[in-house]
Simulated scan of single mutants.
Amino acid sequence: MEIAEKTALVVVDVQQGFDELALSLPRNNPDADENIAALIDVWQATGRPVVFVRHDSVEEDSPLRRGYQGNDFKEYVRARRGKGGGAELLLTKSVHSAFLGTPDLDGWLKAEGIGQIVVAGIQTNFCVETTSRMGGNLGYDVVVAWDATYTFDVEGPFGWRLSAEEAARASAVQLHGGGFARVVTTAEVVRAVG
Rank of each mutant, 00 (worst) to 15 (best):
R81T: 09
V53Y: 03
A32W: 01
V189I: 14
L162G: 02
S132Q: 07
A181Q: 00
W108N: 07
N35M: 02
Q116N: 09
T102D: 14
V11A: 03
C127A: 12
V10F: 00
P26W: 02
E34F: 10
R191D: 14
V77C: 10
Q69F: 15
N125Q: 14
Y150T: 02
D19G: 10
F180N: 10
F52D: 10
D141Y: 02
A187F: 03
E2I: 15
L162K: 03
V11D: 04
R81I: 14
S163P: 00
A45R: 08
A172W: 00
R48T: 01
I40C: 06
A187T: 12
L105V: 01
R54H: 12
K74N: 15
P26F: 06
E188D: 14
N71H: 14
G136C: 07
V50N: 01
G178V: 11
D56Q: 11
N28R: 04
Y140E: 06
D19K: 13
I3C: 00
A45C: 06
E2V: 15
G107A: 15
P63E: 10
S163N: 00
E88F: 11
V14Q: 03
I3Y: 01
G85K: 11
G156Q: 12
E75R: 14
A120T: 05
D61E: 14
G178H: 07
P103I: 13
A170W: 05
T185S: 15
N137R: 09
T151E: 00
A167Y: 03
L25C: 07
Y150L: 05
L25A: 13
V189C: 09
D33R: 07
N35D: 05
A145V: 05
S97G: 07
Q15L: 08
G67P: 10
G67C: 08
A148G: 01
G179W: 01
M1N: 10
Q15K: 09
R161S: 04
V119A: 03
G156Y: 11
R161D: 04
D41R: 08
G156T: 14
R182F: 03
T7H: 06
A79S: 15
P63R: 09
K74F: 11
R54C: 12
I3W: 02
L105Y: 01
V142G: 01
A98K: 05
A79T: 15
D153R: 05
V10H: 01
L90G: 12
M1Y: 06
E112D: 11
W108I: 11
L91M: 09
A8D: 04
G82L: 12
V11N: 05
A164I: 10
D106Y: 00
D147E: 06
F152C: 04
E75A: 15
N71T: 10
T124H: 02
T149D: 03
G70V: 10
Q69A: 15
V50W: 02
Q116G: 10
R133Q: 03
V12F: 02
Q174A: 15
